[in-house]
């Protein structure tokens, strides 16, 4: 059974359909990247799961039970969608109050540990209103991890982070998924980071799912050579079959054709993203 299941989820704003019947699932210990262009419906979907907005129809199942009607449905979730805090409290007190809302009291050790883990050890007593965006992201992740979640929802987690912060985030995400079997659904426009950490990709466009699966990377072998019919013209060979490529290349060489350029082009996530 999947940890999280999105079933025919629809969200309408008046006549505009932001989500048009989405279906997909996330398993325990799996890192799923939610990709899509601006306005594709990623944040609407994440907001629906987080309960910030109400879907028009469809269902969201967590461990086989609907999330939409359960009172304490999100207690096992860690959520980072636009980090928000109580601005007149410092980082430590923000986490402390969050624990109290969750019904846990006096877990100082956990708070200190988390703040150290996200790199805010020396900033715990500063009011969060003075935090930079990157620091807010770090504290947002600490908030998401505070209740030892079994499922993480992260909307653009790498935005505003410095390279060290990014590495910390990636390490935590991978460790949570691999060691603690936390299911993770995150959206990002940073395709290199997505390629690096995700197990599966769900691509949506215009509120519809366009791709759901593991990215298969292909290599295209390219050879550019002078045409045997006209010396002023060049011809191009493009193939994904390495054996065929080598065969053609040897034939060309043995017949004295001048090869101008050889190249191997690796497909990337960008191709998938671009083609929708």
């Amino acid at each position: 059974m999947s940890l999280l299941e999105i079933k025919n989820l629809k969200k309408k704003y008046g006549e505009f359909e932001a989500l048009k019947g989405l279906n997909f699932s996330v398993n325990a210990g799996e890192i799923v990247a939610l990709l899509g262009k601006n306005g594709a419906g990623k944040t609407t979907l994440l907001n629906s799961i987080a309960g910030y907005i109400y879907p028009t129809s469809g269902d969201i199942l967590y461990k086989g039970e609907t999330l939409l009607k359960s009172e304490n449905r999100l207690n096992e979730f860690g959520i980072l969608i636009e980090p928000t805090f109580i601005p007149y409290l410092n980082a430590h007190d923000n986490l402390d109050i969050l624990l109290k809302i969750t019904g846990i009291y006096d877990d100082e050790e956990n708070i200190d540990e988390l703040l150290t883990e996200v790199g805010l050890k020396n900033k715990t007593r500063e009011k969060t209103r003075a935090y930079s965006f990157g620091m807010k992201q770090r504290l947002g992740l600490a908030q998401a991890l505070l209740n030892k979640p079994q499922f993480l929802i992260l909307d653009e987690p790498f935005v505003g982070l410095d390279p060290i912060g990014k590495e910390i985030f990636k390490k935590i995400i991978i460790q949570k998924a691999r060691e603690e079997k936390v299911g993770i659904l995150f959206s990002s426009h940073d395709l290199e980071d997505v390629e690096e950490i995700c197990d599966r990709i769900v691509l949506i466009d215009g509120g519809e799912k366009k791709f759901d699966g593991v990215m298969e990377y292909t290599k295209t072998y390219i050879a550019e050579y002078v045409s045997s019919n006209d010396e002023n013209k060049t011809e191009k060979l493009e193939t994904e079959d390495q054996d065929e490529f080598m065969e053609v290349l040897l034939t060309l060489k043995s017949s004295g054709v001048k090869i101008i350029n050889l190249d191997i082009r690796k497909s990337s996530l960008y191709d998938l993203f671009k083609d929708g």
Partner: peptide, 17 residues
């Protein structure tokens, strides 16, 4: 103010009712 600065979501996520 909490709706305005977004901090209400800290509550609405955890207190579902």
């Amino acid at each position: 103010s909490e709706i305005d600065n977004g901090s209400i979501s800290l509550f609405t996520v955890r207190v579902r009712n």
